[in-house]
Design a protein around this nucleic acid. Structure first.
Length: 352
DNA sequence: AATCCGGGGCA
DNA sequence: TGCCCAGGATT
């Protein structure tokens, strides 16, 4: 059994010296903490920081967020990825405004009922804002605990994750749980890093089983990753009266709720022209004549890579109607900035 | 239990 | 290039 008190003491002493000065550590406002926690899901602090400032500038309180349109929220989220987070944030703000008197619930158990709030986020808000003795388990904490306890099983395995939650829970002190949880994450982000952990500076190395055995660089174990396929995509730049045709993607699935130029995947044996004609027929119900290529850009998603081949197209027959999109609009280049586009689209929008 | 869901920084 | 990030929802 670990000396829990000694680990807590050493970690907190280090944290109080070394904690980064981050904006969400300068507030006790549960709304702002909530925004930060959702924004930082699968997102590095450095990447989220500018978004955090801008988001709170646009939506300074829960009532403002609840009253905003989904398009406004997605625009503020544009470029951050995992857009379900933005839609759930919006939905939760409306629910809390209507059913909870505009105040977030205080207990983790209740917070976790809100869309987009899982066990991690609920634990973070409850411990940081309301002092509830509940753990957090994010990528940082998983790595720290896997090393301290020298856990050899893959941390991606649900059984291991269950064990890690238990280990995290027993380590959280009854007083100051929020500060302690943040210190665990800070340790993982600053010293107990995936590669080349800085054990010589680590306040808990004396309690770390992986360090004692010299296997810290081999832990934590992860599941093998699958190869990422490549997709060839064709995109139609259809112009009318100086405006381009854009469609809003359905809210479920990849890039949900974002706007894009129509197009789709090139099937085996198809030319770009054939694929584009087919996609325009299927997505818009129109016949197009494919013109010259405007751009060809590459983009990498988590699970696959794409090449977007953009062609100018002219509508020969039919009037575009939304079939796979939830809505179609004609917008001028100058209006592009008002809509949330995927990063892959931004790579060629400037070339139109 | 497995899969899906973005984008970026870094070795 | 591959890895991984202050995870959650769905099937």
């Amino acid at each position: 059994m670990k000396d829990l008190a000694a680990i807590r003491r050493a970690l907190l002493a280090w944290y109080r010296q070394e904690a980064r000065d981050l904006p969400w550590r300068r507030t006790a406002d549960p709304y702002r903490i909530w925004i930060s926690e959702v924004m930082l899901q699968q997102t590095r602090v450095g990447q989220g920081l500018p978004y955090y400032e801008r988001f709170l500038d646009a939506f300074p309180d829960l009532a403002t967020l609840a009253a905003a349109s989904e398009d406004q929220v997605l625009k503020a989220w544009e470029g951050l990825g995992y857009y379900t987070r933005a839609r759930n944030l919006h939905k939760t703000a409306q629910t809390v405004a209507e059913q909870h008197g505009g105040k977030l619930p205080e207990r983790a158990e209740l917070l976790q009922l809100l869309p987009g709030v899982g066990r991690y986020t609920a634990g973070a808000i409850a411990s940081i804002c309301f002092g509830e003795r509940v753990p957090v388990l994010d990528g940082n904490v998983k790595r720290v605990l896997a090393r301290v306890h020298r856990i050899e099983d893959s941390i991606d395995d649900p059984a291991t994750e269950k064990e890690l939650w238990i280990l995290a829970a027993e380590l959280v002190p009854p007083r100051g749980p929020g500060e302690f949880n943040q210190s665990m994450m800070e340790l993982g982000a600053r010293l107990c890093t995936p590669k080349k952990p800085r054990c010589e500076e680590c306040p808990v190395s004396a309690h770390c089983s992986a360090f004692a055995a010299g296997v810290q660089e081999l832990l934590p174990a992860r599941n093998p990753k699958k190869a990422t396929p490549h997709k060839e995509i064709v995109v139609a730049a259809i112009q009318r009266d100086g405006a381009y045709l854009v469609g809003r993607r359905p809210s479920e699935g990849l890039l949900g709720g974002l706007w894009e130029l129509p197009g789709g995947k090139v099937e085996p044996g198809e030319t770009h022209q054939q694929a584009l004609a087919r996609e325009c027929r299927e997505e818009l119900g129109v016949t197009v004549k494919v013109g010259g290529m405007v751009a060809s850009v590459k983009h990498a998603y988590t699970h696959f890579k794409v090449t977007l081949n953009v062609y100018r197209c002219a509508v020969i027959a039919g009037e575009p109607q939304a079939r796979t999109h939830t809505e179609l609009r004609w917008i001028a280049r100058e209006e592009f900035g008002q809509y949330a586009f995927p990063k892959a689209n931004h790579k060629f929008l400037g070339l139109l």
